[in-house]
């Protein structure tokens, strides 16, 4: 239910600076908010709108298009079982049924203890490793029913905390691109022919040079 923390606002501003237009940072900022709260809270969307200069409705319009953004609280672990064709062939749908049994919930819902949300998802690009699943977007390949139960036990006991962060945390390594490192990101209307192109043009035809970036 929260706006971005001061630290995240600083990070948000750094991310916005990487794009020629602020709105391009909208999806990364929604991830940041989801990392902060575990889901994408309404207040966070309002705050993101303020940061990138669009209305809250526009933030929601974009965010709601993408299924990774959860507008309501979900479990600490989102267990996404692939049931698309390659996994279906190798038992993905049966694995999903087993997961429903093990967790005692239907796909699309969250366990009472708030630990697990189960979803059946579309292809996650692990087709040769079917059936595959992700927990908070960390891959688990060639999962049997027993593997699944063991994985759930390990998640419950915290033994996988190092590899599976709480829902919302996506990449644990970020691109560090401080403002002073940026070579040339400005709004498109201020951009000119890049230096190396201009220099080559000038070399071939000195009259044709038309300036260039610093």
């Amino acid at each position: 239910m929260s706006r971005l923390t001061p630290e995240n606002v600083e990070l948000a501003k750094q991310i916005i600076r990487r794009y020629p237009r602020p709105k391009s940072a909208l999806i990364p900022l929604c991830h940041l908010a989801q990392e902060q709260d575990g889901h994408l809270a309404d207040d966070a969307m309002v705050h993101i709108g303020e940061l990138v200069g669009v209305t809250s409705a526009e933030v929601l319009g974009t965010a709601s298009f993408y299924e990774m953004f959860k507008r309501h609280e979900v479990g600490k672990y989102c267990v996404n079982i692939c049931t698309n064709i390659s996994c279906q062939l190798m038992g993905g749908e049966e694995l999903l049924e087993h997961a429903e049994q093990t967790l005692g919930i239907r796909s699309g819902s969250t366990t009472n203890d708030g630990l697990f949300t189960l979803e059946d998802v579309e292809c996650i690009a692990a087709c040769t490793e079917a059936p595959a699943l992700q927990v908070n977007y960390r891959y688990f390949h060639r999962i049997s029913n027993d593997d699944f139960d063991q994985m759930i036990d390990e998640l419950r006991s915290g033994r996988l905390d190092d590899v599976v962060p709480p829902h919302g945390v996506l990449a644990k390594v970020r691109q560090d691109l401080a403002e002073e490192q940026i070579a040339n990101i400005t709004p498109p209307e201020t951009q000119v022919m890049p230096r190396w192109i201009a220099d080559e043009a000038a070399k071939n035809d000195p009259a044709a040079s038309e300036g260039g970036q610093a």
Binding site: E58, L60, G61, S64
Partner: peptide, 22 residues
Amino acid sequence: GDPLIHFIDRGANTQVNTFPDE
């Protein structure tokens, strides 16, 4: 210039709506 209504959600579930309470 008042984008206060927007497509929300996706595909066959797409709907037009406002942001909650706005």
